Amino acid sequence: SFNTVDEWLEAIKMGQYKESFANAGFTSFDVVSQMMMEDILRVGVTLAGHQKKILNSIQVMRAQMN
């Protein structure tokens, strides 16, 4: 498990989005775990492969939080 959203993004090789997530207010796992595709688009993730990777990881995160 990760301590910060930045660490999580690095771990899934999506570190290039750290600033975008932070600027959009997605700075805690409570918020990130609620993200939908529209949120991912809003933070500027436009590549389908990256969207899928982030969404898949969020689903895993949700499962671990319950």
Rank of each mutant, 00 (worst) to 15 (best):
M14Q: 03
I54W: 01
G25K: 05
M36Y: 09
E10R: 05
L9R: 00
I40H: 00
K53C: 11
E10D: 13
G49Y: 13
K13H: 15
K18H: 04
G15Y: 07
I40G: 00
Y17L: 02
A48E: 14
F26Y: 15
S28A: 07
G49H: 15
I58Y: 01
W8D: 00
Q64Y: 08
Q59K: 15
M37S: 06
V31S: 13
Q59E: 13
Q34M: 12
E10C: 07
A24R: 06
Q51R: 10
K53L: 15
R62M: 07
F21Q: 01
L55T: 04
E19A: 14
E10I: 10
V45N: 01
L41N: 06
M65R: 06
D39A: 04
V32I: 11
K18C: 07
D30A: 15
Q59R: 14
S57P: 00
M37F: 11
N3D: 11
H50A: 05
A11N: 10
M36R: 15
M14F: 05
E10N: 08
V60T: 10
V31N: 08
E10K: 06
L47A: 10
D39V: 03
V5G: 00
N56V: 11
I40D: 00
S57D: 08
E38H: 10
E7D: 13
Y17H: 04
A63F: 08
S33Y: 10
Q51A: 13
D30Y: 14
K18T: 06
L41S: 07
S33W: 09
M14A: 03
H50L: 04
G25Q: 05
M36A: 12
A24Q: 09
G44S: 03
Y17C: 02
K18A: 12
S57T: 04
N66W: 03
Q34K: 13
L47P: 06
Q34D: 07
D39L: 03
R42V: 08
D6I: 05
S28L: 04
Q16K: 08
N66Y: 03
S57G: 09
Q16A: 09
L9I: 03
Q16M: 13
L41R: 12
T27E: 05
F26E: 01
K53I: 15
V43F: 02
T27A: 07
G44K: 03
D6T: 08
M65W: 06
L41K: 11
M14I: 03
G25R: 04
M37K: 08
Q16E: 10
M35N: 00
D39T: 04
D39R: 02
Q64G: 10
S20G: 14
M36F: 08
E38M: 09
E7F: 05
T46D: 07
E19I: 10
V31M: 12
T4A: 07
V43C: 13
L9Q: 02
A63Q: 14
K13C: 13
I12P: 00
